[in-house]
Design a binder for these strands. Sequence first.
DNA 1: CTGAAAGCGCTAACAC
DNA 2: GTGTTAGCGCTTTCAG
Lengths: 337, 337
Amino acid sequence: MAVTIKTIAEELGVSYATVSRALNDHPDVNDDTKKRVIEKANEMGYQPNAIARGLVNKETKTIGLVIPDITNPFFPQVARGVEEAAATAGYNIFLCNSNWNKDREEHYVNALLQKQVDGLIITPSSEDLGHLKKLLKSKIKAVFISSFIPMENYTSVIVDNVLGTEKAVDHLIEKGYKKIAFIGAGEERFANKERLKGYKKALAKHNIKVRDEFITSVKRSYDQESGYELMKKVLARADKSKLPDAIICYNDLLALGTIQAIKEAELRVPEDIAVIGFDDIFFSSLSEIKLTTVAQPKYEMGKIALETLVEKIKSNSDKEFKSQIILTPELKIRKTT
Amino acid sequence: MAVTIKTIAEELGVSYATVSRALNDHPDVNDDTKKRVIEKANEMGYQPNAIARGLVNKETKTIGLVIPDITNPFFPQVARGVEEAAATAGYNIFLCNSNWNKDREEHYVNALLQKQVDGLIITPSSEDLGHLKKLLKSKIKAVFISSFIPMENYTSVIVDNVLGTEKAVDHLIEKGYKKIAFIGAGEERFANKERLKGYKKALAKHNIKVRDEFITSVKRSYDQESGYELMKKVLARADKSKLPDAIICYNDLLALGTIQAIKEAELRVPEDIAVIGFDDIFFSSLSEIKLTTVAQPKYEMGKIALETLVEKIKSNSDKEFKSQIILTPELKIRKTT
DNA sequence: CTGAAAGCGCTAACAC
DNA sequence: GTGTTAGCGCTTTCAG
């Protein structure tokens, strides 16, 4: 059996309450006994049992991070930001991949609730939060990343999506592109709606008519394959004169697939068609890729999410928090525009 | 206060032991009361407290994953494999990034021990495990990934590194390359030693003399920058006739930097110099990169690590486990050779 | 300043 | 079948 507070109390001939106090650096304890206790504890290799402590304190110094997929290059940076900030605040992180699956997401949230996490950071796999009712009932502190939840008591850390695509369009127009298309990720996603809004807003600003045939969307997955396939179809369908001369993609993965399709059609990027992504994931800056993209401050988003979550945890109840923390995206101009 | 086993016992007028039994589907309990309890529990939104349960069961259904950096593209896949397998086995994962720092690694291991994890999966940031003495004393079940720990009671999940570079050399020679160099990652790393060994072994097999000037190494970090800088120097130093015609890199990141340096020197890959990486991280297969590389089964490694860890946890004590589980790497021939 | 004792929420003997 | 009770390791009143 491991050495407990009790073992060391017996060893020293004091009560275990005293040992507890000494170890927690409680003021009301003789400096001398404190020293003796601490020495003994080290000597015996005592490790406090955080589970037992958590049971009485109702605080586990543990938070849950539920994301769709750590394998998607957007998330490692976010996770790192969360984890780094958690480390400095003294928390450990449960990592959960929902795999874009509501049931799994629900299951994880329940598991985390049972494990008594002090808080939750979630990037929901879907805008519809019906499956998270237990969470919402549980009054647990939570912050959302990349997805705006219009509810009191919750705050979302997001990037200014509208501004992001606006910047992208502005840049394209400045470069002389006129026929700008948008490849989105399905109407229902919050970020997609916002990015589309920014796209339209910027076009309007420049007196360019929105052309419906220039707005397309992939369905389920937002990776390079789906981008590739969609663009293939676009290129096959249209006669060349009706092709866009620039494309803004919902994310970098899609952009990459799009570029691949364009090249296979023996067109040049950016001379024939320019491409802009969104996110600025790891490979986008590689010399072989050099994708122009709207960068999200991913690490920062994670960090801020954790920090505000900790603030929420520490603030007993009714303090008001912003319901949105909106970060500014940055346009990284590289070689595909 | 949350609803506990006690609340629902009072509500139903039964003892809370009965509630516990019912909820745990214990055989010795009347089907009818069982049903009533379960209904009531659902009705009241009861969530078991895993912390309390853990205290008595001495089992938290929680395992710690300590890796250097989730942001390094090698690890998300591993983490995903671990997590996926954990989900099916009913465990949650604590994710910890040591950031290649021993102190932090030690700190995390201690924190996890205190949080009473049932087991640990670690990719140590260094071969020297001096800082993990507490772990080693604690008799906690652990499995290592990518790093061989020659100790009883521990098992390591690794790839056959020797075979990996052997395959790489064989392939290069088959393609007609003769002057094959190796860019390593510092003598002390286990995987580096093994890969170097495979390189030398294969050269010997083909009766090619090992040339010391063809073996170089980056220092601290194993990313594209360090590969780029090292290769820059190599290219600057040597007169063209002494240049290798092929390079095997310790990993894909290094390979990428190497390629970049080669291209900047106005040499072609693979015509002038071929390059092979190791790992097969996400971007290596992209159409713009198409790096020939020795693929590690990363997801599998994580999955297997978790599965054997769970086996260890379940097997009470002295069952024997392999000290190494060696997976076979696969050579992915793409466009850089 | 220190000890005794209660209790966090739950499980597991042990009675009845 | 069900209730009673002890106890997991710890913190925290409450006495002294």
